[in-house]
């Protein structure tokens, strides 16, 4: 049995070679750079010492953490009702509506970020509309609000799909059985639909949280100076100060941070499916 499973292993060789060449090796290089001194000579933890003693790092790490958490929360609260609605549609209608969910993928993040500056700016469409009713203007650009809007817009599909998949995987008889037993809609939702959907919610949350930890373009274009994220700081070190050691160190820290998040979420009830476990 085990042997047969590995018989087709050579099918994954091209992908593995590709990933080693363009991902694993460069990543190892980055990790190495973070523990050698600036000249690339001897071992040194100076990079970590410098980073952990810089107040800028803590500020940026904190804003990375809060922005990621906020945009994940916003994505989840918008994506769940959307996925629930989609799961209730007939297959044909759902296929059409799915295209709208995928629309954010059709344009690059960069282009969309610029588009959002037009929508959200002081004299943008939203504030113009508010002014028409004698309201506003709301500060929506170059602050956290702008970053959250821009990020959520990109992230929602990543949340919708795993949730939709786990909603659709639920046999309809379960809800019908509960209904015949006398359960009302709220009880069916909270005792059956939602618990059975937890693995999907966990997968979506993990995906979105990890994606948002590494966001770069959106905070750079839609955020203010306070909304710098770790990726922006890496960019700052590589391009502005040419401090490759600090940049590498930051990258390793960000990577470890993401791993910790993934591991923690996988330990939460309903999250074990992330690591291939069977929670249901």
């Amino acid at each position: 049995m085990t042997q047969r499973r590995f018989k087709t292993a050579y099918f994954v060789i091209p992908a593995v070679v590709f990933m080693i060449a363009v991902y694993a090796l460069p990543l190892a290089g980055v990790a190495l750079q973070s523990v050698t001194d600036a000249d690339g000579g001897s071992w040194s933890l100076a990079g970590y010492r410098d980073i952990f003693s810089s107040t800028l790092f803590y500020k940026v790490a904190w804003s990375t953490f809060t922005i990621s958490l906020l945009s994940t929360t916003v994505s989840l609260s918008l994506a769940f009702p959307l996925a629930y609605f989609l799961s209730k549609q007939r297959p044909k209608v759902r296929a059409v509506l799915m295209i709208f969910v995928l629309v954010p993928f059709w344009t690059s993040v960069l282009v969309k970020a610029f588009a959002f500056t037009i929508l959200l700016g002081q004299s943008g469409i939203i504030n113009d509309a508010l002014a028409f009713f004698g309201l506003g203007p709301l500060p929506l650009l170059f602050n956290k609000a702008g970053v959250i809007v821009g990020m959520s817009h990109f992230l929602i599909p990543f949340m919708v799909f795993p949730i939709l998949t786990s909603l659709m995987a639920q046999p309809p008889e379960l809800r019908r059985a509960a209904s015949i037993m006398g359960a009302g809609r709220l009880r069916i939702f909270f005792r059956i639909t939602l618990p059975l959907c937890l693995p999907g919610i966990m997968t979506g949350t993990l995906l979105v949280l990890i994606l948002s930890l590494g966001f770069f373009v959106v905070p750079a274009l839609l955020g203010g100076r306070q909304d710098m994220m770790l990726s922006n700081l890496v960019d700052f070190y590589t391009r502005e100060t040419l401090n490759w050691q600090a940049a590498s160190t930051l990258a390793v820290i960000l990577f470890s941070f993401a791993m910790i998040v993934a591991y923690t979420l996988a330990r939460v009830p309903g999250g074990s499916s992330l690591l291939g476990g069977q929670d249901r």
Partner: peptide, 13 residues
Amino acid sequence: LGMVFQSYALMPH
């Protein structure tokens, strides 16, 4: 009413 389904419809969680 009570109903028994072919798929049993027991709540897996």
